[in-house]
Amino acid sequence: MTTPNAQTHYSGPAVRQDAVSRTLSVLVDNEPGVLARVIGLFTARGYNIDSLTVTETEHEKHLSRITIVTRGTPSVIQQIKHQLERMVPVHRVHDLTVEGKAVERELALVKVAGKGDKRIEALRLAEIFRAQVIDTSIEHFVFEITGKPSKIETFINIMTELGLVEVSRSGIAAIGRGPQGM
């Protein structure tokens, strides 16, 4: 229940629902400003963006795929979907989380600096996580790691102890399971 506020005529927030995390895949025409439109919608309407990736995926048709991980109540998620769908350059919006377990992967580049035991331990752990060394000197490594966001999160947490310098992450790329496309 909301409490009526005697100072304003605007109604209070609606009944609270629990927020859920959803991965949306948005197929758009790759035209100037399309990303600004999508991001502008999220900021203007107060929606969250936890992760966002975008690249042209079908060059001959000039189609880009935007993958957005967002968080909100089910009714907010529904609104986000409808608001995206009514944008002129948007072809389709799919809620991958709802439509069946989607495959989600992320890539991270992780720079770790250190000497001696810590350096050896970092390399040993990288092997366990199947991270590749893509740049090195006698006092640093740059690891390339791909996987579920949770795996990357864990890897980064461990590396914090071992001389983590910086991280660059791609954001989440996601795709539905099974033979059909979106």
Binding site: M1, T2, P4, H9, Y10, S11, G12, A14, V15
Partner: peptide, 9 residues
Amino acid sequence: DDRITGRLD
């Protein structure tokens, strides 16, 4: 619209 509904709940 909020000018129509008044208190939503």
